[in-house]
Design a protein around this nucleic acid. Sequence first.
DNA 1: CTGTTAGCGCGTTCAG
DNA 2: CTGAACGCGCTAACAG
Lengths: 335, 335
Amino acid sequence: MVNIKDVAKLANVSIATVSRALAQPEKVSGKTREKVMRAVQSSGYVVNTLAQNFRRRRSNTVVVMVPDIANPFFANIIQGIERVASSHKYRVLLSDTQGNEENERACGEIVTQKQADGIICLGRNIPFAYRKGRKSIDPAWPPFLMACEYHGEIPVPSVCIDNVAAAAEVVTYLLALGHRKIAYINGPKDSVLCQDRFQGYSNALHGSNIRVNKHWLAQGEFTLASGYEAMKNLLGRKQRPTAVFCANDEMAIGAMQACRDEDLVLPGEMSIVGFDDLVFGEYTSPRLTTIHQPRNEIGECVMTLMLEILAGEKPKISRIFLPHKLVIRESTASL
Amino acid sequence: MVNIKDVAKLANVSIATVSRALAQPEKVSGKTREKVMRAVQSSGYVVNTLAQNFRRRRSNTVVVMVPDIANPFFANIIQGIERVASSHKYRVLLSDTQGNEENERACGEIVTQKQADGIICLGRNIPFAYRKGRKSIDPAWPPFLMACEYHGEIPVPSVCIDNVAAAAEVVTYLLALGHRKIAYINGPKDSVLCQDRFQGYSNALHGSNIRVNKHWLAQGEFTLASGYEAMKNLLGRKQRPTAVFCANDEMAIGAMQACRDEDLVLPGEMSIVGFDDLVFGEYTSPRLTTIHQPRNEIGECVMTLMLEILAGEKPKISRIFLPHKLVIRESTASL
DNA sequence: CTGTTAGCGCGTTCAG
DNA sequence: CTGAACGCGCTAACAG
């Protein structure tokens, strides 16, 4: 392997000059730069990033913790992160935690071991140990950001949409269509984001003097199968709702299938709304009404923020809200 | 930052002993190990992987080149890779190439720069420059494997299913249902995998003395939208097919939507088969008949192979075939 | 089994 | 603007 020393010899300069010519060309005279570049070319030299990172004490790498890569929702966020990262010579180390605490802990370690400079968490758990009840960021933590989710207690800077408002918008729309019996299939209980969506649902109902009815509340796990089950469950209860708001598109698609299996006509006999705006929602039958989240932008935004923090800036605000949008398609009908 | 020297001082041993106690405990006496471990504990020492990697000249990291992370097909493969990797203390550096040559080139560089030890490519392009017509692996290339796709000219070791056989199986099944006018929506032309599937389609037809009819051939890009368009196109031709085989599930789902938009009854008026067995296929209406690919296993297998190669073994065979399976659901009916 | 020693390849002083 | 020299933290010989 040709190293910096070889290049220096070839160019008849010192290794320091080679290093400078490559990293800070402006600090080297034009002629010397030329000489060095030629030597680099002819020798086929490439910096050893391992040595570079070691010396610089940073890896130019960011860990992205994803609860489940197989969930297409995260894919576009990762793409956004990747785009910004790679355009700034940063690498993305992906970790599919599967909600497993040990995996999450491992992500924290990657950073303490200097394998990465910071962590972006798309899930809801902090990968560092901390005392329960803690309400502030531990200055010992490495750069740490969240996206989509945020932390209920600790003000970890995060990028997301206004879930309360978005959910309220959905329900308000259903109310406007004349629905009164609106069910809600929620996602994992420990998700702040789901609590927010429920809050929005609840707020909107109250706004129309309707009280939240336990019988129209079901619980899912953000998966197709859980949406299916939750809907089956809902349909088995005494009084059926006329519309169902699902906390994500996958559950909504599962719910649609459950309705079909019960021979319900969609959307005539049941209106269904999702959340996230996955591409698949455009190809369901009927096409899914949903809330669009700017996933690419969320990814780009959180990575940009990460770069700023790594550059030494302190984040001013702890939560950045990006705009969402209600996308009306065919899965909802007026009563 | 506490380093190995501090621990050595604390434990009253040499730094070499600390290093050994941590990396090869069996080479150190029980007592010394104890002492070291206590010192590690009390000081809160964590190895600096950057230094470790630098010294060892390897990064324990593998790059995975994915053509498009947003394609859920790849997610499970990545999960398989990740599982095996992390259980062997390896990291996965994900790169979404988007079919962009520059991005692919960049992946090659990551390895030459020692940022990663090997590359797993889920797409169809080799990330290194090579002379056209080359028919063998360049020994200068770093460890390089493919999965799903393989290379038509160069025997890059790869893990995949037998696409010819699988496609033939689909068509044979449709023939058995009485279909004779079987269309095929193919994926990207430059994909060997698609050429294989077309080959299988063609073989099966020939087996029944039916010749491939140009009018029932359409071209897609593996996306929902392209499947939709291809089907629309097919439906606009003089004579309509009675069944359509799509080179992947997304196109099949797109095709179903196109049929619905033309008020065709599925599967009565049009049988549709996909390929890959995405979860979404179980939630379409009708549920999608498709070929199941063992995606997790493909990922696990290719990563296992990578570990072997990184351990110095030479791969014996260049192609590993994993079993596929025809999954019959509701999107196909007898004529 | 343990300690001493020599770098790995690079960035970065500090003189010149 | 350039070069000599040092050291980052760790592992791997080698010697004891």
